[in-house]
Design a protein around this nucleic acid. Structure first.
Length: 106
DNA sequence: GGTTTGACCCTAA
DNA sequence: ATTAGGGCCAAAC
């Protein structure tokens, strides 16, 4: 049973239902690394284009979109979420989701 | 191989 | 409320 942490992260993210979001920290806890939130971001950043993993459903603890992929700007992630029925508030170049409403707890 | 760097989070001051 | 620092694991240098 030596699936890498990456694989477990991808599996955990894949479990998020459409129209819901989860924080990086939650994913880290789910895969058994409660303080490894940064690693989750790392794993998602190395996803191939066109992956089936719904990475757009992962936001930070404040519900904010913190993406650092130039090919995929925050507004693109926001659009994906809005497609699933998630309201995304945009104040200036800052996108955020209401966690009280959309946070998914396994 | 050691060091640095992240799509972050927690705790303490 | 805001700031500072440590921690997590893997990749890149």
């Amino acid at each position: 049973m030596s699936s890498s942490l990456y694989q477990r992260i991808y599996a955990a993210v894949s479990r998020i239902p459409p129209g819901r979001v989860v924080t990086y920290g939650q994913i880290a806890s789910l895969v058994g690394s409660p303080r490894g939130a940064r690693l989750v971001g790392w794993a998602l950043s190395s996803l191939p284009a066109g992956t089936t993993v719904p990475w757009q459903r992962v936001v930070n603890r404040e519900g904010r979109i913190t993406i650092a992929n130039l090919n995929f700007p925050p507004e693109a992630q926001a659009a994906l979420l809005q497609n699933e029925g998630v309201e995304v508030q945009s104040q200036r170049s800052n996108y955020s989701v209401n966690l009280k409403k959309y946070l998914w707890r396994p």
